[in-house]
């Protein structure tokens, strides 16, 4: 675990610093009247005049105190910027995840149990489409239909302009209304993937001996499926949940950019455009840590849910 954490910081740092040119180059490019002396001074302020390994150790020393330095753009602490953006991203993804699981588990179970039926074939087609359709395209389609043509849903931001004057209930409703489209886009993509896994997993379980035994002793089909099979089929889904953290974070860049949502993904996107290197490095480190954390939680949950692992060798 520790070597991986260190490796994450090394790669995040190397990606930015091994490329030719210094982060201050762009600041200077933007203001042509900055002379060489001022530029040297900037390099000094940001410690860019020191050897690369010294820079790394300085950076990591600060990182240990959760200090990612300051943004080049507005000079605010990077940590402050991230901690105000991250909750939005987490909220959207948690909502999407809840919807994905609510729908994909029954869909997966049903298409596994009725393998080869019309329902199974229809969902398979839907799954292939869901895998292949780019999320930003689905986003654009939903935006143009519900936002522009019907005009019933807002297409950007997470709150109305006069948000401050609303009552609490009104505020919650307002945010919900703004989140309908982005959460739908994430859900459509995820639904395809998770329902497919669920189907696969269920098919594997149904052919097991203990399911045959349950049927042989005359249990009703409902009990066999929901009591004996479903629990076991859900196990691999826990792992999938942990593994989907990085792709959710990746997806948030696109979703948040098209819907102008002030989250972590959009922060990353803006920082790439303005080459705000401290924010980019922090974004890499934080997202990789989140991924690692997601895997860890999935492992623990798996061990908790599956006694074979808890009591295993």
């Amino acid at each position: 675990m520790i070597p991986i954490l260190i490796g994450i910081t090394i790669i995040s740092f190397a990606v930015i610093h091994l490329a030719p040119g210094k982060p201050t180059d762009l600041m200077v490019q933007l203001k042509p009247n900055v002379d060489l002396e001022a530029r040297e001074k900037l390099n000094q302020i940001y410690g860019l005049d020191k050897p690369i390994y010294v820079q790394y150790f300085n950076w990591i020393k600060k990182l240990a105190r959760l200090d990612f330095g300051r943004s080049f753009i507005d000079n605010r602490p990077v940590m402050e910027k991230i901690s105000e953006r991250l909750p939005v991203t987490i909220l959207i993804n948690v909502l999407a995840m809840a919807i994905i699981f609510l729908f994909s588990i029954p869909i997966g179970v049903k298409s596994a149990v009725r393998r080869g039926s019309v329902f199974d074939k229809t969902t398979t087609i839907f799954v292939f489409m869901g895998f292949a359709a780019p999320s930003f395209w689905i986003g654009l389609l939903l935006m143009s239909f519900f936002g522009v043509r019907l005009g019933i849903l807002p297409v950007s931001g997470i709150a109305s302009l006069d948000f401050e004057n609303f009552t609490l209930i009104h505020k919650v409703l307002d945010v919900m209304r703004h989140l309908v489209l982005p959460v739908s886009v994430i859900s459509i993509g995820g639904l395809a993937g998770i329902s497919r896994y669920m189907r696969q997993s269920m098919l594997g379980v149904i052919s097991q001996d203990y399911v045959r035994t349950a049927r042989a002793k005359g249990l009703p089909e409902k009990t066999v499926i929901y009591k004996h099979a479903l629990g076991n089929a859900l196990l691999p889904i826990i792992t999938i949940l942990g593994l989907s953290v990085p792709s959710l974070i990746s997806g948030s860049v696109i979703i948040e950019t098209i819907f102008s949502i002030p989250g972590m993904g959009r922060l990353m996107f803006e920082s790439v455009f303005t080459r705000d290197y401290n924010v980019i490095m922090a974004g890499l480190v934080v997202s990789a840590f989140l991924t690692l954390f997601g895997n860890l939680i999935a492992d623990i949950a798996y061990a908790y849910a599956d006694p074979r692992i808890r009591y295993g060798k």
Partner: peptide, 17 residues
């Protein structure tokens, strides 16, 4: 370690540079 990074984030970071 490479797999820990959300791929799109990593790609964006390199593109920024």
């Amino acid at each position: 370690i490479m797999l820990c990074f959300p791929r799109f984030f990593l790609i964006l970071a390199v593109i920024a540079v």
